[in-house]
């Protein structure tokens, strides 16, 4: 079980690495933190009202101080693409700069015991939770109790990573190191298959014999996740997706990060048209929302009103 946080912690920038383009890997030294793959942290530079709100970042990796390091600090790694104010501010911090750090938050991926094949699907900057899951499964192979080794031993990991160009393909080496077979798709064909990551997933499942005992774990842009969910539905494979929404707090207080879910009468099949605004106080709503931060960010794909 993940350890519960007590409130905003002060963490310090340990290092910042520009991967390529606008992609950055940032490390923070923080108080001890235990996380489940798929969980996230809320981060913003300390002592500034601009940006005002913290941003949610999926945890890529946590390095605990080794015995030899004795008293060394926990290091938390996040991966992000500089897009707006929040990510720009983080990418301009120097080693030793303080950040407000809250987490781990949310619910991670759930891994069934009898899983045989783990299918990891990531698009662009959606790769961190998927890598975290691969590395966690890799570790569990060595640390799991003998009674469960039989199940774990048969586990096979296949990863599908997609992006617009080869510069949007991240962490392929990390996934391979974790023991996954990696398939890459780029829209411009600059690396791997020319096309979408779901093409690769689809053709893999067509030729695969043990698809029925697989589970898909995905994270990426919403349209990609929708496509993955459709593939999963077609092959009748359980599918967990990690969603993104603009969050105010990250722990269920602000109710800002709602995700439309299948509920009483709520249907938007084939359409992403937003539901109408409440027209008056007495409106009985026929739609249903869940909070991305508290109920997710990992959801069963079937639950989502795509």
């Amino acid at each position: 079980m993940a350890k519960e946080p007590r409130g905003v912690m002060h963490a310090e920038v340990d290092s910042l690495h520009r991967l390529h383009g606008d992609y950055y890997l940032q490390r923070f030294t923080s108080p001890r933190l235990v996380f489940e793959p798929g969980q996230f942290v809320m981060v913003k530079p300390s002592g500034s009202l601009d940006p005002f709100l913290p941003r949610a970042y999926s945890i890529l990796r946590v390095k605990r101080p080794g015995r030899r390091a004795g008293g060394g600090k926990t290091v938390v790694e996040i991966l992000y693409k500089v897009i707006g104010k929040g990510t720009t501010a983080l990418s301009q911090l120097k080693r030793g700069d303080r950040v407000d750090f809250l987490g781990p938050l949310g619910n991670g991926y759930r891994v069934p015991r009898n899983l045989t094949t783990t299918l990891l699907v990531a698009g662009g900057i959606g790769v961190p939770p998927v890598v975290a899951l691969a590395e966690s499964l890799r570790r569990s192979r060595f640390t799991v109790h003998a009674s469960r080794k039989r199940d774990i031993g048969h586990r096979r990991m296949v990863a599908f990573i997609g992006g617009k160009t080869r510069h949007d393909i991240l962490c392929a080496a990390d996934l391979r190191k974790a023991g996954a077979t990696v398939h890459v798709a780029t829209e411009d064909g600059s690396l791997g298959h020319r096309g979408l990551v779901t093409d690769l997933l689809d053709s893999f499942l067509r030729s695969s014999v043990d698809g029925r005992r697989s589970t898909i774990y995905a994270c990426g842009p919403h349209p990609m996740l929708h496509a993955v969910a459709r593939v999963a539905e077609r092959f009748e494979i359980p599918c967990q997706v990690s969603l993104e929404a603009e969050m105010g707090c990250g722990f269920g207080a602000c109710m800002g990060c709602v995700i439309p879910v299948q509920g009483s009468g709520f249907r938007v099949q084939g359409s992403r048209k937003p539901p109408a605004m409440n027209d008056e106080l007495s409106t009985m709503n026929d739609r249903s929302y869940k909070l991305c931060c508290k109920d997710g960010p990992v959801f069963d794909a079937q639950e989502i009103a795509w």
């Binding site: 005002f52 709100l53 929404a245 603009e246 602000c254 800002g256 990060c257 709602v258 709503n285 739609r287």
Partner: peptide, 12 residues
């Protein structure tokens, strides 16, 4: 009960 408004609901 009210489901509230459609997202996005928050702007910094």
């Amino acid at each position: 009960s009210r489901q509230g408004n459609p997202p996005p609901r928050i702007v910094e």
